[in-house]
């Protein structure tokens, strides 16, 4: 499903947090949202998810304007947000419908992928931060939503698990190509996964750049084109940081 964000803006109690953000995701496209902390990435995602409707501008999913959450969307929040009274298995089953046995089967399958098959009976209080986040990832992916919103999904994980899960996301994408928006701080991650990288800057957050990443997936890390892009993005992020410093000074 396509996502269209047009002139998105949001203020909290009269203070503008983000303004005038526009970008588009074609069906099956993976968009990366890159930007310094506090520039409004999570806020944009909440708008797209329909969890926040007090924004300016319009957001359309498959051409239809969003004015509330729709069940077809999968979302991974910046925090795990697990239900503390449910076990890992039941947390993963949270968004599933249908017969219990089928739910369990699907959940077990995806728990194996995220490496938690031995912890199905654990409660969230017994999990480490990374395990909790992996559970949340499993919960969002198990429903195989046609649109996926991921808010820094892998930032709490070690480098190896991170690579593994990035591969999993790519596999998932190859299997049924969901449209995705991924918020990330990791440029390499954005370059591995995304077809387009939207760079935000400043406070209030504004659109700084919209870069298309052309090489076909799966990509080799050594691709010279990617190195070039990385340099470019680093430069522009550096510029946004300098710009912020100037604003503060």
């Amino acid at each position: 499903m396509s996502i269209q964000v047009e002139r998105f803006g949001r203020s909290f109690d009269g203070v503008t947090a983000v303004e005038d953000i526009s970008f588009q995701a074609e069906p099956g496209e993976i968009i990366g949202l890159l930007g310094t902390s506090g520039c409004g990435k999570s806020t944009i995602l909440r708008g797209v998810a329909g969890l926040d409707t007090d924004y300016e501008g319009t957001i359309r999913i498959s051409g239809k304007e969003v004015n509330g959450p729709s069940g077809e969307l999968g979302i991974i929040f910046q925090e795990p947000r697990l239900m503390p009274w449910l076990t890992v298995l039941d947390n993963v089953c949270f968004g599933l419908e249908g017969p219990k046995e089928e739910q369990k089967e699907k959940a077990l399958e995806i728990l194996k992928v995220v490496g938690l098959e031995d912890f199905t009976g654990h409660y969230p209080k017994q999990l480490s931060g990374g395990m909790a986040q992996r559970t949340a990832i499993a919960r969002a992916l198990v429903t195989e939503p046609s649109t996926l919103l991921l808010d820094e999904p892998f930032s709490a994980l070690d480098a190896f698990t991170k690579l593994q899960l990035q591969d999993m996301v790519l596999e998932l994408w190859e299997r049924y190509s969901p449209t995705m928006i991924i918020v990330t701080h990791d440029i390499d991650e954005a370059l591995t996964l995304c077809d387009r990288i939207v760079i935000l800057k400043g406070q209030p957050g504004e659109l700084h750049d919209n870069v298309k990443v052309t090489p076909a997936k799966p990509r080799r890390k050594s691709d010279p084109k990617l190195a070039e892009l990385k340099e470019y993005i680093l430069e522009s992020l550096d510029m946004t940081r300098n710009a912020q410093k100037e604003v503060r000074a």
Binding site: A49, L51, F94
Partner: peptide, 26 residues
Amino acid sequence: KLIEVGKAYSLSQFQLVRRIILPASL
């Protein structure tokens, strides 16, 4: 934040109460 998770899965008001609010306020 937990209620938001329920909303993201478009649970009805009744389901929100049964699956999130009730256990959380127990």
